[in-house]
């Protein structure tokens, strides 16, 4: 693994078990996150984005497990095979919060309502650093100040309900960044915020990325966010990464019908009111009753008989890969 890679995921499979049925939520996913860059994972609801994130943190529900594959974390002290660690073991607990941190979709519910913001940030520092009480407090205030929270000395002792939505998400990021993690996983961090606040949060994340060399894994379903923030993009559908590459590869030269369909479903400013927004027909299949071959085939405009077989992953260039039988045709089409 190159020194530039922060986290490498290979052929990861995470299955959920309910009533003797098995949901292959993540079904063979591979990607790398590079230091100081952002990987965006895009896809519709239920495609396995969040499960991938939870798997990396080993925060899966009880009735699910890593079936196959590897998650390798490149720490300062050498490579750590996360998939081999005990789910709630000491080593996993050490990595969580200090090496890999996570922020969530809704900062309203992700913070504990009965404790002050300062208390909740200090908690991470208390368990992952050797700082004493006054140092922890100073560091907490410093973190809040870095995240652009006004008068942090007073704000540190306030409760989440005193904060606005955007400030809560900043506080969440302060909490996540408290121990200088190498990787920040952001699970739709701005979905619950309004658009102007979104931009501020993204600016903050960009700053963290360049200043601290943090690798960011950003889960989103917003293609606008991808265009703005991503260095690399992975498009997920039904537990597979159907297309991955640099942001230019994927957004400018999409080779998978699903990526193309996603891009065509976004209204574009300036094209006027009557522009043709294409929705993707059909709905995501029932995870317990999946199509036989390519998972997207039933909704795909390019599907042929060949699509009854699962396509293999094909490397189009050093960075760009796709899982589709028809990718040549899409090249001409584009």
């Amino acid at each position: 693994m190159s020194q530039q890679t922060a986290l490498s995921v290979k052929d990861l499979k995470t299955y959920f078990y309910t009533n003797k049925r098995c949901n292959k939520a993540v079904n063979g996913v591979s990607f790398d996150i590079k230091k100081g860059s952002t990987l965006c994972i895009v896809g519709e609801s239920g495609c396995g984005k969040s499960v991938t994130a939870s798997t990396i943190m080993q925060l899966l529900p009880r009735l699910s497990r890593i079936e196959e594959g590897s998650i390798t974390y490149n720490s300062d002290a050498g490579e750590i095979a996360i998939h081999e660690l005990e789910r709630d073991g000491a080593e996993m607990k050490r990595i969580r919060g200090s090496e890999i941190a996570m922020i969530f979709q809704d900062p309203m519910t992700a913070l504990n309502p009965v404790y002050t913001i300062g208390f909740q940030i200090a908690e991470s520092l208390q368990y992952h650093t050797d700082l004493n009480k006054s140092q922890i407090r100073a560091r907490t205030i410093e973190l809040l100040a870095n995240m652009g929270i006004p008068s942090p000395e007073q704000r540190v002792d306030e409760y989440p309900h005193h904060y606005s939505g955007g400030m809560r998400q900043r506080a969440m990021i302060a909490m996540a960044m408290s121990c200088n993690p190498k990787i920040l996983i952001a699970d739709e961090p701005t979905t619950a915020l309004d658009v102007t606040i979104q931009a501020q949060i993204f600016e903050l994340m960009e700053k963290l990325k360049t200043e601290n060399d943090t690798a960011i894994m950003l889960i989103t379903h917003d293609m606008g966010v991808v265009a703005e923030l991503a260095d690399d993009v992975a498009v997920m559908y039904m537990g597979n990464i159907v297309e991955a590459g640099t942001v230019d590869d994927v957004l400018r030269r999409p080779r998978h019908p699903y990526t193309k369909a996603l891009l065509e479903s976004i209204p574009v400013l300036g094209r006027g009111r009557s522009q043709d927004i294409k929705s993707i027909r059909g709905a995501t299949p029932d995870p317990y009753d999946r199509p036989k071959g390519c998972q997207f085939a039933p909704r795909c405009d390019f599907a042929t008989d060949a699509c009854n077989q699962m396509p293999a992953e094909e490397q189009l260039s050093d960075t760009h890969r796709v899982m589709c039988w028809q990718h040549e045709e899409l090249k001409q089409n584009a």
Binding site: M57, D88, K93, G97, A101, T109, A110, L111, V114, Y115
Partner: peptide, 25 residues
């Protein structure tokens, strides 16, 4: 609730997640 997941993602020990965060609420 979600703040339990947050607490877990911070790598806190199990007793602290259950009692300090869970029970208090």
């Amino acid at each position: 609730r979600e703040f339990i997941r947050t607490a877990r993602s911070k790598g806190l020990p199990e007793w602290r997640i259950n009692l300090v965060h869970g029970f208090r609420v």
